[in-house]
């Protein structure tokens, strides 16, 4: 028996479209308003405005993991924060076919709509678990909180779902009632992932989720991410400064420098035939 659908399938549309996202901190001036202005890294030499993101565009397709690499300060985390409404960008748009068939710019939605989208379409996992978890609530309550935010009021259902998610991310169920502040860094990240998955979001945003973890714990988190993509078919945007992480997870990769995407392509092409000077430096730094 052989495949029946692969030959007739057409390539699907992007699940998430980010277009010309720009995020600046400062007053701006006529000089840096020009998109071709030469900045000192990402700072305007005339007015001192920091241009954290400059016309960043990105497509995320169903079931794919896309990697974003770049050094600290390149704009990776700002990009993630803008997509999930933690940070208001200066301009640009974010659309998804899951909301009004992609005709609505999510960034222009009302705060209530944004909260609903954030709770049901995006799952965000931060580098610092303190940003994503309530450290004094139990692990189970953290998950329930996310489900309550999306309108669920059925206690038993939330409890069952919470336990199932904790099991999926390999948290011993005897620890379900313990607060994450008593967990190791790797366990905290896995509770964050369980919380992010609580409402079955089709898009997971993972910001440096393995940074600071020791190698064996890092391996467990990476294996978990791959398993979730395989089993749940979740699309993911994975931000990392670690090319080894990107190599393992992502099919396509964008390289960021000073707020801009300077290069994008298939991950193996980026790693083996990097075109830009910075990307070559990055690849040659790979241990």
């Amino acid at each position: 028996m052989r495949r029946a659908t692969s030959t007739s399938a057409t390539l699907e549309a992007p699940l998430l479209k980010v277009r010309e996202l720009t995020c600046s901190f400062g007053p701006g001036c006529s000089y840096c308003a020009d998109r071709d202005a030469i900045l000192e890294r990402n700072m305007c030499p005339r007015c001192g405005t920091i241009h954290a993101l400059r016309q960043v565009s990105l497509d995320v397709y169903p079931g794919e993991i896309i990697g974003i690499v770049g050094e600290s300060g390149s704009g990776k985390s700002t990009l993630m924060r803008c997509i999930c409404f933690d940070q208001q960008p200066s301009s640009g748009s974010v659309t998804t076919g899951l909301v009004e068939n992609g005709t609505v710019d999510l960034l222009a939605c009302s705060p209530q709509q944004k909260r609903a989208i954030r709770n049901t379409i995006f799952g965000m996992v931060y580098q610092n678990p303190w940003l994503g978890l309530r450290m004094d609530f139990s692990a189970l309550s953290n998950i329930a909180e996310q489900m309550i935010a999306s309108g669920n009021r059925k206690v038993e259902e939330m409890r069952t779902r919470g336990l199932s998610l904790l099991e999926q991310v390999n948290i011993p169920l005897r620890r379900a009632s313990d607060p994450p502040r008593e967990f190791s860094g790797g366990m905290q990240q896995r509770v964050q992932i369980a919380k992010a998955l609580s409402n079955n979001p089709p898009i997971l945003l993972l910001d440096e989720v393995t940074t600071g973890l020791d190698l064996s714990v890092q391996a467990k988190v990476l294996d978990l991410i791959l398993r979730l993509r395989r089993d749940l078919d979740v699309s993911m945007v994975v931000v990392s400064h670690d090319l080894a992480v990107i190599r393992m997870l992502a099919q396509r990769t964008s390289v960021m420098l000073d707020g801009k995407v300077i290069e994008q392509g298939l991950t193996d092409q980026i790693l083996e035939d990097p075109q830009e000077r910075y990307t070559q430096q990055l690849v040659h730094s790979l241990l």
């Binding site: 495949r3 390539l11 099919q251 994008q264 298939l266």
Partner: peptide, 12 residues
């Protein structure tokens, strides 16, 4: 070919 096309070709 687009990256998506290449991913499809590599897969199938």
């Amino acid at each position: 070919a687009s990256e998506r096309q290449m991913i499809h070709l590599r897969r199938f």
